[in-house]
Each structure stands twice: as structure tokens, then as C-alpha cells.
Write a protein that binds this DNA or RNA. Structure first.
Lengths: 118, 118
DNA sequence: CGTTCTATTTAGCATTGCTAAATAGCAATA
DNA sequence: TATTGCTATTTAGCAATGCTAAATAGAACG
């Protein structure tokens, strides 16, 4: 599968996926990065730093998440932990509801095509 | 739902949807436009000319569709009919297969979040 | 000291949907 | 004839977002 399509499919849903992960538990960029690459790495085409960190900044600017610095870790640099806000939870609820309608609509177009083959 | 999210969700899948419609039957830009706005107009946030026509050009450049001009219509301007090529069908098959895996993966992240609420 | 792993930052690019307006033919109607 | 409305396409420029690529830095291990 051409990587171009992977990239475009991601747009819009990646932000929702990050919100899901942060809503599930407080986490930080590097953990999100490795999580995405372990869960469906092939499907996501492997997420990169330059993709994840800017999204985290945008989510914070939008007031959907807040961050705190972990003073020092046993190994590695300082971590910036993100957790979801009330506003973030509300947005995530709206996003996932819309995603269900949206993906169902796309599935409908695919079904119509496949039915026309018979 | 903020229109920004609608816009981003569309990216990547709109091209696949257009291919579905053209694969189902030979059609032209204006018909696609009205079709999208009738089938799930609210979900798509209403597709515009500036969105549809550039996609059709790209599909043609990529060799996924071919076009022919309808000499003259009973009413309205000249139509440019698009039909899918063998390469387009193959790409559509790959795209839809990937879409299924991809949307299932996104659904998985949503499920994991919802399960963590209990 | 060099390598590896953890962890974040950021500049610039590519893709793609949207805004907005222009162009044009034909039909109906006043 | 002039106007309005519907069909139909084109295109310039903007906005949003993922990717490329590289830089920075601490800690552990040999």
C-alpha cells in the first residue's frame, strides 16, 4: 500500500486517537509514539516525532489536555505527562460519535460499489 | 460538530469515495457533487466544487480514471464523464481493503478508551 | 569515551480540502 | 430582449496536518 494513502487517512483521526490514549491514562509523547508503532504499526505506517509532538502542543493550546513535567526519570530525559481535561473529554465524545457516523457513511459508498459488481 | 474536524476526516477517504462512485457507473463532477450532498450531506459538511474537481484531475493524472466530453446536453454546459480504468479498479481494491483495516484500528483505540471508563 | 536508549523540539515541505469567484450554455419568464 | 435560475467546469490562493530530517540532552553500559 502506497504510503501516501496511509498519510492521508490519518489526517483528522490521529488527533482523536491521541485523545483516546491520554483519556485512558496519563501519558507522554514517547510512550504514545511507541504505543502507536506497536499497536498497528504497519497500519499507521509508523508514527514519527514530528507528527506526534506538534499534535500534543495543539491539543494543549486548545485546552483539551494539560501537561506536567516529571522532575527526573530513572533513565532518559525529562518526561512531559499529558492528561485530559473536562473540555477534552467532551470533545473526544463528540469526535468519536462523529467518527462512527462518518466511517459508516464511507462504508456505505464502498458497499454500493461492491453491490454494483454483482 | 466543528467543521474543522469534518474537513480533516475527509482527507484521504474522499478520493476513495469518488473512485467508488465512478467505479459504480460513469459519471461527471456535478453529479458527484450533488450525490455527496444528498447522501450524508450533513456528515460530509457539503462538498464544494473546489474540492471535487481537483480530485478528478488528480485521479486522471494518476491514470486511475479516463474522461470523455459529452458533446452537448439538453440542458446546461458540456459534461466531462469519468470512468474507471483497470489501474483505478486495482487501486480502489487496495484502498478499500486498507480502509477496513485502518478504521478497525481506530475503532480499537476508541474501544480501549471506553472500556477504561468502566 | 563512544554507543544506545529514552525523550523532546523544531524548521520546512507536501498534500489536500476549502473559500471565493469567474466563466458559460440553455430554458423559462416577465 | 433582459433577467433569473439551473447546470457545469475552472482555478488562484489559503489553511490544516502529517512527514522529513536533524538537533539537543540525560543516563546507563561496555
Amino acid at each position: 500500500m502506497d504510503n501516501r494513502y496511509v498519510q492521508q487517512f490519518k489526517k483528522g483521526s490521529l488527533e482523536m486517537v491521541l485523545l483516546c490514549l491520554i483519556a485512558k491514562k496519563e501519558t507522554y509523547g514517547y510512550e504514545i509514539l511507541t504505543c502507536l508503532n506497536e499497536n498497528g504499526g504497519g497500519i499507521w505506517g509508523y508514527a514519527k516525532e514530528g507528527t506526534i509532538y506538534p499534535i500534543l502542543y495543539r491539543l494543549q493550546e486548545a485546552g483539551l489536555v494539560v501537561s506536567r513535567l516529571a522532575p527526573s526519570a530513572a533513565n532518559g530525559g525529562t518526561k512531559k505527562y499529558y492528561s485530559i481535561t473536562e473540555k477534552g473529554l467532551q470533545t473526544l465524545q463528540e469526535l468519536t460519535t462523529f467518527w462512527v457516523d462518518y466511517s459508516r457513511c464511507v462504508d456505505g459508498f464502498i458497499s454500493q460499489w461492491k453491490e454494483s459488481l454483482q
